[in-house]
Design a protein around this nucleic acid. Structure first.
Lengths: 336, 336
DNA sequence: TCCACAAAATGAAACGTTTCATTTTGTGGA
DNA sequence: TCCACAAAATGAAACGTTTCATTTTGTGGA
């Protein structure tokens, strides 16, 4: 990639017959005599001048760049989150530096260093490792869902507890008597852990016996699901549960496919509600399964809002937004 | 977002007791006496120094930033493309500025101007409007699929003609006698138009009567599909076609759902092959339907490779990579 | 010990902005 | 016409690097 030659403010000043400072004022919207403003604007047009971002950045120490550190964009939830972050930033005249860290701790730290290395004005992070101790104190940052030890970083998340509770209430409303819960989790703590708390709370509240898969995700998910299913078959083949609340749509859909392949009917025999609200081909499409949908657009907007408002005064250390139930074919409420 | 104070090279020089130029040499890996190298490295450690990107950028006129202009990341194809572009750039020490233009011409042009405005070293574009005349001649750029009038920009794409042809050959191989073709397209020309040419060529070659939907996408796709289906029902309800080659997985899946809802069996009554190779929950998951899969990773890598090699010498104006068939449940070849 | 030469180190100038103390211009009143 | 004052314009200095002409240091041979 070859460098580019471009006209400078000096060229504009010469062309317009005014001083450097006058050109700067016009560019930055500082009042200047009508006559000079016109001359400068004409010169800018004529020379096709564009302000040099490095020079400006060097002076004002701002890049208008915000880094988003995220595992990837192939996961539809991350993809949608990225999309909304981008448009929230764009609205504010900010640009998005996308950092896909693949959940690799070293890559997450690398990107964080790069961010600290005055390339960006702030960071929004959805990370998988505990990078708390690598965050420079002076770097404005907001995290989605995760909780870091040793370091208070403003967090934004869905109200996972209420969402978990809502999932069970919906299953009961649609006629379930024995809802179970399925979860494969990472080893790092975050707000989404509260989905299980919501499930347990609802069990308590409605007098249900808790029953669940709750395992660290080691890639043997299908095997674990199969074993669980085996254990819950009655002699006649029918199941001892009639509802599933899955920690994520992804695992819920996996379980859905497993149930179908074993000859069970969904939602007739078993109803399933997931979490996240992932759509098949992107934003306007159908859900994979009925789901407690995270308000992704609002979450993204909130992250950007908090980040851009950071100026030394304390930011809210936790902001929760409500998640909503939406029909997606695996429950008995039918299409609304 | 507050600015950040950071130590400068001058501070490092003072701390190490050497000249500014010596610090610069150490940082840029230019040989320096062992003694001084150690002193500088120690000082850098001690002060936690990081080079200021704006100052360096101002001098060397490079940002190590590449802009990707893409409609969005919620479309799984774009999401996957973005993901692979990011990792290709990362390998080369480059960073990704993500520009979601939503297919809005003004936003595409805005981002292009921003790119020209020396914020980035190069641009990779997957755009929807004809922005050819807005591309600055000095801006290194590669486009995916699209063709711009008035302007030769290196293009990278799948071999859509061969892919279209392959789809039909696969359908014939799996027992189809009357494959049709379905397409809803944008008004801007690109390489993907050749999928239809491949279909027509295959019809010619294998003595088939071409039959297809080929409409501008106005959002009334389902209606058009339904009408097409009605016209192709025999009095006994069976269909006059037994295979579908869909221009995209998205529309193929839509047609698949329509067929199921009308009581047809897939792949028993009708086999379907799409194009793109979109997976349900991201990279490691199942395809939505059997598909001619674009080699997204290779395509992304190629875009980056060509972009980074641009230095005034002519770049290949078109690079085609082969697309491959993969089973996805809607054909009779069964899981491999 | 001295000299010549190569290697290393030095630090001023420059990149293109913004800022701000200083100068110039313009205006209204006497 | 002159003066006082406000408004506008000016341009040098500074931001933190890299570059490169110049100076200093170090080494080997006589």
């Amino acid at each position: 990639m070859t460098p580019q030659k471009a006209p400078t403010m000096k060229d504009v000043a010469r062309e317009a017959g005014v001083a450097l400072g006058t050109v700067s004022k016009v560019i930055n919207g500082i009042p200047v005599s009508e006559r000079n403003r016109l001359k400068v604007e004409q010169a800018i047009q004529a020379l096709n001048y564009e302000v040099n971002t490095y020079a400006r950045g060097l002076k004002i120490q701002k890049s208008n760049l915000v880094a988003l550190i995220i595992p990837n964009t192939t996961n539809p939830f991350f993809a949608s989150f990225t999309d909304h972050i981008e448009s929230s930033l764009y609205k504010r005249g900010l640009r998005l530096l996308l950092c896909c860290a693949d959940g690799i701790p070293q890559k997450e730290i690398d990107y964080l260093n790069m961010a600290a290395n005055n390339k960006v004005d702030g960071v929004i992070a959805l990370t998988y490792s505990d990078i708390g101790k690598h965050i420079p104190p002076s770097l404005p940052m907001v995290v989605f869902d995760r909780f870091f030890e040793n370091r208070v970083i403003p967090r934004v998340a869905s109200d996972n507890f209420a969402g978990g509770c809502l999932a069970i209430e919906k299953l009961l409303e649609f006629g379930c008597r024995h809802p179970i819960y399925i979860r494969f989790h990472s080893v790092f703590p975050g707000e989404s852990d509260k989905r299980k708390d919501g499930y347990l709370y609802a069990c308590e509240k409605y007098g249900l016996e808790p029953d669940y898969i709750d395992e660290v995700d080691r890639g043997d998910r299908l095997q674990i699901m199969k074993e669980f299913l085996e254990k819950h078959k009655r002699p006649d083949g029918s199941l001892t549960f009639d509802g599933v609340f899955s920690h994520t749509d992804y695992h819920g859909y996996m379980f859905y496919r497993l149930l179908l392949s074993e000859g069970y009917r969904v939602p007739e025999d078993v109803q399933i509600i997931g979490f996240d609200g992932i759509r098949k081909f992107g934003s306007d499409d159908d859900l994979f399964i009925s789901s407690i949908c995270q308000p992704i657009e609002l979450l993204a907007e909130k992250c950007v809002e908090i980040l851009t408002a950071m100026d030394g005064t304390p930011a809210p250390c936790l902001t929760l937004l409500p998640a909503q139930y939406r029909y997606g074919g695996t429950t008995r409420d039918g299409k609304r």
